[in-house]
Each structure stands twice: as structure tokens, then as C-alpha cells.
Nucleic acid binder design. Structure first.
Length: 863
RNA sequence: GGGCGUUUAGCUCAGUUGGCUAGAGCAUCUCCCUUACAAGGAGAGGGUCGGGGGUUCAAGUCCCUCAACGCCCA
């Protein structure tokens, strides 16, 4: 039965087993399994328009390790993969690849041929295409990307069931996202409102709170001279970083306790340049120590302005349009002279307007000193290049507790339903939920994505009536309101008085991504499957998207299913450069995963990932991969040796049992490792399981195997105990390592077992300890033997002789009990140490502690 | 400003309810071609556990405080 190669190697095993695993379908999800026998994973769908990097390899390996563990524990593992092809990165990639742009007002053209397939010239003008055509091109392009991703993930050894694949822009995904949205709408969880909204002027879209980031930007405080309306000789100095918004000023605020401004509360001030009268109000959010302590409220300079505007019932005077430029129409309140001044700003960008305003202030003498340069945090869209503006627009929202204390409490409590790995990550969730200041804005003024599935009636003047949107029938989904028709209307009524208009917007990508359990589990069209896998057992993800992906999934599940969508959340850390900075592509020396697979083997790369404790940021380390490669190679060699030792069929068939102390003690130790590894993996701690297994493995190779190899090989001695123990330990260790090193373990398993190791049962302490009752102190005995062996080795090393050198005489001093034990188990020690004469000295049993010591006398070198 | 995390050998990190002389790998040095493996093996050196204070018979571990670094949120 020996199928052991002469020169074992892990090179090339990936291709062989990837193919075989696919053929044998060993990772196929058994959808007839009962819920309690299923382990379901809400895999993060990677963005296919990017490239796979080490961060993916890192975190997906962690998840795969867990999947493999539970599969060996007998669970039917629901392990799908998804491709995220809905969103800005894909939109950009499709535009740049085909030289097209999406225009939802256009009609679908069957058999459309894009002007380019790859690398359109820089000066090529994008050809506008309909949304359905754009999505078709997206499908075509992402299919290529997805192939590359899939190959890489297979090579990494992910035990994904590829038949469960889903994508986020597919018809099924659009139907799911639209169904979920319509049900939110029906229950009042989604609503539309005209309100101040964070707006990216370059992308031309509203942006949600979750997509914001602060960036430190240079700016300047400008000291502006307002005047008291009652007495224009009295000035009020206001410091502002955005003087260009003076025209949008609707009031001044100071802290209620600020003595400097008490006399002004309830009175009016006149703005610089334009001389518009604005009220002065007290408000606790005003910061007395910031600038002069009195702030200008504009439409809208920042989020605090929105709060003041709302709470103080201030006027609305928008000056910046959705394109980021000053609107042509000056606020009505302005005098004719002020309007002339304003006309100079019209059409300017915010930045140009600021420069011009400073000039104007200098002309009127209302800039009391030169601007004072500062750096301050400015809000950006995470993908944007210019600071966000706040404009008033009509948007769709889904309630998320940001404006509703009870819902917020409920969502916080949902966080308690999960077990967090590591547990402190729950703070981030609580922190985010507690800090929400508005509902979830889900509409986007973009073209590519899942359309908001609504139409609106038009009144007799052709104006939109937002109150009772027209919803599609369930069977009609997915719809594209820009081309599809609401029921009961005809195409010629589109845009006509008393007709209808489709909602032009799409949904935020998170509105689809928040439904990954529903997408993967086919909530809309396969309730049998969905009920088997939901709520899912685990959501693995990066900790940076707790506020987005994790939270939004929680919101949807809370509304739709009244339960947390998973039982566990497992958060991965980040990959850092060796210099502890977040790994970035811009470094130029990026190592691609496939290069590393080539160089070290997939198992070695997985080993590096599996060494990182859950949730801990980890340095990229090729050294660690080398160690993993060594481990895999060692496993091959060990297996070759053990199987060689037991190559004649006497071993397992005779029903031999471990009976030597050394063998029993080794198995007792191994049983402890099985116990620890199992407990660790049950708690999602793959790193601990690996560490314990690996430590045992090296000890097993270096000490145990060295001790017993002569006995196991020997013709003259009874080798059955050693052989059965070696085989048993080998089988257990191979299975313990299988989740981390799927290729190497499959290779060695194939030499002596039938079937895939990944379908073998997870080792137990019971099987490890079967057939014998070890005395309670066997491990102590083994420790003593190893201690003596260590002393012998040290002596030989210090004498600079080979470990094979003969020991003429060994004197062992120990307590009576240890001496008796050693005397009864001398054979292995004698073999391993090449010992000739051995003498025992019983130390005084009253002297404590009873130290074991060994005095080694080497045989004279033979020369 | 609030929250969270990290700080242990030159480097990367373990150290789970407080308890043997604080461990591993890499790196360094010495030695050994030994019939599973030289892609190996046997050893050695190297740490006032970030600083300070406290609790305790006993603190890397618990408490307080300070500092540095990182992340999230204002």
C-alpha cells in the first residue's frame, strides 16, 4: 500500500488537488442537511474591478480555515463566493475599458457594440449608452475579472462551493435589492425627504455618513467685520474659514453663557459686502474658544450649520449649486447693490469664490487682518477629491436609528446577539451606532447600479407628486424605471402632465451589499434554502467596514427578519508593510499573491496568514512563509518515514495497542493538543490551534520519533506499540493541520488513506487515547527521559562530536520513583543516545526539590 | 475631545482564570553530511516584560497613573 514518492515535494500539488477537489465535489454544500448540521458563512464579496492583494489572501484564508474545521466536524458548510460588481470601481472600469458612459434616458439597443474593447485613446469621447446596455457590458467585462479571481482563490485552496456563486449587479441581485427596498417602503422604514445632504460636486451625487472621511487640509481663518444693525458703527468680528459663504449667511450664533455677546442675542447684524440683516442667536454648540467665539451660520457650510438652521428656524439661502459652483441667482433678500456684488461670484467654484471674496472684503475694508493659515479637518467623500458641499435635495432614506432613539437601542441590542471575535470589536459597532446623526441615505445620483424601483405621478402641470409613488408588482422585478413602465400607464405618458416619471436614481451599493445573506441564500426565490442557512453562523470581514457593511446588514435583517443576521462576527486585521505602515499598492514593489504561491507554495502563504491572531494587524512576512514551507516539507518527510516504518501490513491489522510508556505518554500529550486545538477553533481562533499543533509536531519529530525509531524499525524487538502509536499520531496530526495546510495534508493523506482528508472526521481525544489506560504520571516519565536525552545531546554538542557518538557511561541521579521508571523504560533512551553503560543513583528522597541530573562520559573517539 | 487596541529578545510574536528559572520562530554564533528530511539535526548567546506607583505570600498577568504608536468616531 505504499504510495510514498521517493522524493516528496509540495511543489505542484496545488494544480493536482484543485482539479481533483472540483471533480469529486468535496466542498459541495448538502442542501438537504438540517439547520443544526449546517455551518453557513456570509463571505465578503470582493470588488472584482480591483486586483486581489495580500489582504484578501490573508482574511479569506482565515475564513477557509474555519470552514474546513467545521466541515471535518461533520457540518454541511455553506460557503459561497460573491463578486461585487455593483459600484463606482466597476462603473469606472467599464467606462474606461469600452469608452462608454451610462445615460439612463437612452433606450436599450440590442446587440450593441462598444466603440472599444480595452484602451480607448485618451481623447476619445465616451459614447452614451442605456443603463441595460451598460450593465451588459459590465457583465461581459467582470466575467473576465471573475475568472482571474476564481483561479487565484482556488489556488489559495479556498474550499468554496463555487456553484453558490452570486454577484451584486445580476438580475437576481437587482430583484433582491429592489424587493427588500419595496418591503422597507411598505413598512415605513424607507422614506423620501427634501433635506440638506452631503454632496460630492465631482461625482454629482449625495453621499452617506458612512462614506465620509475627515482629511486634514490647509485653510485660513478670516476675520470678518459684521456690523450691528442698530448701530452700524459697532462691529462684530466673526472668524470664518469659508468667507465665500457670506452671501449664504443666515445668522450668527454664540454660546448662551458667552458674556461678550449677551447684548446681541435677539438683535440683528449686517453681513459684510452684502449688508444683509441676519439674526444673532445663542446656541450651546457655539464654541467660545474658537476664533472670536461667534460663528456665522450659512446655507450650508458644515453639518453644524444644518443643526443651527434646523433648531433655530433660520432662513435658507443656497449659493453653491450641485456642480460646486455659485448659482447665478443671488438670494432674494439682497439689495440691488448687493446683487451686483454677488454677480461677481456667480459661476465661480468655491475656491475661486474664496479668493475673490477676500479681494472684495479688502475693497470694503471688512477684512480686519490678513487671513491666518491653519490646518483643519475637512469632510470628504472617501472616493472623492474635493471637499463635500451641503446642498438641499430630495433623497431616499432607510431608518437606521440615527433619528430614532428606540430603533437605535434595538440595533445596539442586536449587537449583543452576536459573538464578536475578538470581542473588543463590538465597541466599534456600539461606537458607530451611538454616534449616528441621521438616517441612512440610500439614493445616489449615479447611473450604474440597482435603480430605485419607483415611479411618481405627475400633476396637471407635469410636476412630480412624491407622496404616493407607483410601485412595481413583485413579479415585475427587477425593474428599471427609466425604461420600464408602471402598471396602468402607457409609454407616451412618461414625463407628460398627469402622466408619470421614473425615479432617476440608483441605490447606494451598500443597499445591495447589506443583503449578502439574502443574495447568497436566495431569499427571494428559494425559501427552503434560505431557512436552512439563515441566520448565518458567521460574518467574516475587515474591521474597517463595521460601520458600513456589518451595520447596514444588521439594519436590513433587523427590519426584514427581526433577528441579527449571524451568530458570530469574525474581524480580520490588516496587512502592514514590514515597516508597519498599511500595505499600499503605490510602493512599486508590490508582491502579487500568485508570485508568492509560485515561490513558496499556497500552504506556506496560508501558514503566514493563519499565524496571525484574529483581528490583529499583521506585518507582511516572507520569512513566515518560509517557515510554513518548512513545516509542509517536514510533514511530507515525516509521513514518508512513518509509513516506511510500518510498511509491512502487520501494524494496524493485528489490533496492536500502545503499551510502552513513551508511546502512551506521547499520545496523552497529543490528546491535550487535540483538545486545545478543537476548543480554539470552536472559538474561531485558528492561530492558537495552529500554534499548539505545530509545537507538538516539532517535538514529535525531534524527540519522540528519535526515541522510538530504532524500536519501530527493529526486526528483533516488539515494534507493534511504537508502530501503532506512530500511525495513530500521524493520522491525528495530519488532520489537525488540514484546515491550515490543505494541500500538503491532502498529499500525505493520499499516500496511505482513501478519500480526501478534508472529508475525514476531525480527530478526537477518544480515538487518540483508545486501547490503553495511561497511568497518571506517564507524561512525567516521558519528560524525565527527554531531559536525560537533552543532557546527552548537550554533552555531545559541547564536545563537538556527532550525535551518533557513543556514550561510554551515563550516571543518572534522581529520586527513587524516577529511577524505577527510567530503569523500566531504558530501551528507547539507550537507542537514541547510543548509550553503553548506565548507572543510577537514587538521591535522598528528603532533599527537595528532587532534581534529575545526568552525568555523561563519552567514549574515546575512534578516529 | 471621546472610544478601542498595541507596547515582552536585534526582528515578528506567544504567554487563556495571578503561581516552576519569562517562551517560540526568524536572525546571530558553534557544532554534526545521522540510512525520513542538509529544504535537516544538536546546542549557545541574547530580555530590569514601555515608565512610575499600588494590591498580594507571589504581578508580564490585577488596579491607578503617565508616555509613545496605531485605528475608529467627533
Amino acid at each position: 500500500m505504499s504510495r510514498v514518492p521517493e522524493k516528496p515535494t509540495i511543489d505542484g500539488v496545488e494544480a493536482r488537488f484543485v482539479k481533483q477537489w472540483e471533480q469529486d465535489g468535496i466542498y459541495r454544500f448538502d442542501r438537504t442537511a438540517k439547520r443544526e448540521n449546517i455551518f453557513s458563512i456570509d463571505t465578503p464579496p470582493p470588488t472584482v474591478s480591483g486586483s486581489l492583494h495580500m489582504g484578501h489572501v490573508f482574511s479569506y484564508t482565515h475564513t477557509d480555515t474555519l470552514a474546513r474545521f467545521w466541515r471535518m466536524r461533520g457540518k454541511s458548510v455553506f460557503y459561497p463566493m460573491g463578486w461585487d460588481d455593483n459600484g463606482l470601481p466597476t462603473e469606472r472600469r467599464v467606462q474606461n475599458f469600452y469608452g462608454v458612459s451610462c445615460d439612463p434616458s437612452l433606450k436599450y439597443v440590442a446587440g450593441f457594440e462598444p466603440p472599444f474593447r480595452g484602451d480607448p485613446p485618451k481623447d476619445a469621447k465616451p459614447v452614451p449608452v442605456s443603463r441595460p446596455n451598460f450593465i451588459e457590458l459590465c457583465d461581459e467585462l467582470t466575467a473576465q475579472d471573475e475568472k482571474v479571481f476564481e483561479d487565484l482563490f482556488r489556488r489559495l485552496g479556498l474550499s468554496v462551493d463555487w456553484s453558490l456563486l452570486y454577484t451584486t449587479i445580476s438580475e437576481h441581485a437587482r430583484r433582491t435589492a429592489q424587493s427588500a427596498f419595496l418591503r422597507n417602503l411598505e413598512r415605513g422604514e424607507a422614506y423620501t425627504q427634501e433635506a440638506p445632504t452631503l454632496w460630492d460636486v465631482d461625482f454629482g451625487t449625495a453621499v452617506a455618513q458612512a462614506e465620509l472621511e475627515d482629511r486634514e487640509r490647509p485653510g485660513a481663518f478670516h476675520k470678518l467685520k459684521f456690523r450691528e444693525a442698530d448701530d452700524e458703527s459697532k462691529s462684530i468680528i466673526v472668524e470664518s474659514t469659508r468667507p465665500e459663504l457670506i452671501a449664504a449667511c443666515v445668522g450668527l450664533v454664540a454660546h448662551p453663557d458667552d458674556a461678550r455677546y449677551q447684548h446681541l442675542f435677539g438683535k440683528n447684524a449686517l453681513t459684510p459686502i452684502f449688508g444683509v440683516e441676519v439674526p444673532v442667536h445663542p446656541h450651546p454648540l457655539a464654541q467660545p474658544d474658537k476664533g472670536s467665539g461667534i460663528a456665522m451660520v450659512c446655507t450650508f457650510g458644515d453639518l453644524t450649520d444644518v443643526i443651527w438652521w434646523r433648531e433655530l428656524n433660520l432662513a435658507t439661502r443656497p449659493t453653491i449649486g450641485r456642480d460646486g459652483r455659485f448659482v447665478a441667482q443671488a438670494p432674494e433678500i439682497m439689495s440691488a447693490q448687493a446683487q451686483t456684488q454677488y454677480a461677481r461670484l456667480a459661476g465661480k467654484s468655491a475656491k475661486q469664490a474664496q479668493t475673490l471674496t477676500v479681494e472684495m472684503l479688502r475693497e470694503t475694508g471688512e477684512l480686519t487682518e490678513d487671513p491666518r493659515a491653519i490646518t483643519h479637518p475637512v469632510k470628504f467623500y472617501e472616493k472623492g477629491d474635493r471637499p463635500l458641499e451641503i446642498v438641499t435635495s430630495r433623497q431616499w432614506y432607510i431608518r437606521n436609528g440615527g433619528r430614532d432613539e428606540k430603533l437605535r437601542e434595538k440595533l445596539l441590542a442586536r449587537g449583543d446577539e452576536l459573538t464578536w471575535h475578538p470581542d473588543f470589536m463590538q465597541h466599534r459597532y456600539a461606537n458607530w451606532v451611538g454616534g449616528l446623526n441621521g438616517d441612512w441615505l440610500v439614493s445616489r445620483q449615479r447611473y450604474f447600479g440597482v435603480p430605485i424601483p419607483l415611479w411618481y405621478r405627475l400633476d396637471k402641470n407635469g410636476e412630480i407628486i412624491y407622496e404616493h409613488p407607483l410601485v412595481p408588482a413583485v413579479g415585475q422585478l427587477p425593474v428599471d424605471p427609466s425604461t420600464d413602465m408602471p402598471q396602468g400607464f402607457t409609454p407616451d405618458q412618461r414625463g407628460a402632465p398627469n402622466g408619470f416619471a421614473g425615479d432617476p436614481d440608483i441605490m447606494d451599493t451598500w443597499a445591495t451589499s447589506s443583503l449578502t445573506p439574502q443574495l447568497a441564500g436566495h431569499w427571494v426565490d428559494d425559501s427552503d434554502l434560505f431557512e436552512r442557512i439563515f441566520p448565518m453562523d458567521v460574518r467574516p470581514q475587515g474591521h474597517d467596514i463595521i460601520r458600513t457593511w456589518l451595520f447596514s446588514t444588521m439594519v436590513r435583517s433587523n427590519f426584514e427578519h427581526d433577528v441579527a443576521p449571524w451568530k458570530n462576527a469574525s474581524l480580520s486585521g490588516w496587512i502592514l508593510d514590514p515597516d508597519r505602515k498599511k500595505m499600499s499598492k503605490s510602493k512599486g514593489n508590490v508582491v502579487t499573491p500568485s508570485d508568492l504561491f509560485d515561490q513558496y507554495g499556497s500552504d506556506a502563504v496560508r501558514y503566514w496568514a493563519a499565524c496571525a491572531r484574529p483581528g490583529v494587524d499583521t506585518a507582511f512576512s516572507e520569512d513566515q512563509m518560509k517557515v510554513g514551507r518548512k513545516l509542509a516539507t517536514k510533514l511530507l518527510n515525516l509521513t514518508k518515514f512513518v509509513l516506511g516504518a510500518g510498511s509491512n501490513e502487520t501494524t494496524t491489522s493485528t489490533g496492536a495497542q500502545p503499551k510502552d510508556l513513551v508511546d502512551q505518554a506521547m499520545l496523552v500529550r497529543l490528546a491535550e493538543v487535540v483538545d486545545e486545538a478543537t476548543t480554539a477553533l470552536e472559538q474561531f481562533d485558528y492561530a492558537r490551534a495552529l500554534e499548539r499543533t505545530e509545537a507538538f509536531f516539532w517535538w514529535f519529530c525531534d524527540d519522540y520519533v528519535e526515541l522510538v525509531k530504532t524500536r519501530a524499525y527493529g526486526e528483533t524487538q516488539d515494534s507493534s506499540s511504537a508502530r501503532v502509536s506512530l500511525h495513530r499520531a500521524l493520522s491525528v496530526v495530519q488532520r489537525l493541520l488540514a484546515p491550515m495546510l490543505p494541500f500538503a495534508t491532502e498529499e500525505v493523506w493520499s499516500w496511505w488513506q482513501s478519500g480526501s482528508i478534508h472529508r475525514a472526521t476531525w480527530p478526537t481525544t477518544a480515538e487518540t487515547l483508545a486501547g490503553f489506560n495511561a497511568a497518571s504520571d506517564v507524561v512525567d516519565g516521558l519528560d524525565a527521559i527527554c531531559l536525560v536525552l537533552g543532557a546527552v545531546r548537550r554533552t555531545k554538542t559541547e564536545a563537538k562530536v556527532s550525535q551518533r557518538a557513543e556514550v561510554a557511561k551515563l550516571v543518572i541521579t534522581a529520586d527513587a520513583k524516577t529511577v524505577a521508571m527510567l530503569q523500566a523504560n531504558l530501551l528507547d533512551l539507550r537507542n537514541a543516545g547510543s548509550l553503553q553503560e548506565i548507572e543510577f543513583v537514587v538521591s535522598d528522597s528528603n532533599s527537595e526539590p528532587t532534581n534529575l541530573s545526568a552525568q555523561v562520559t563519552l567514549a574515546a573517539p575512534l578516529n
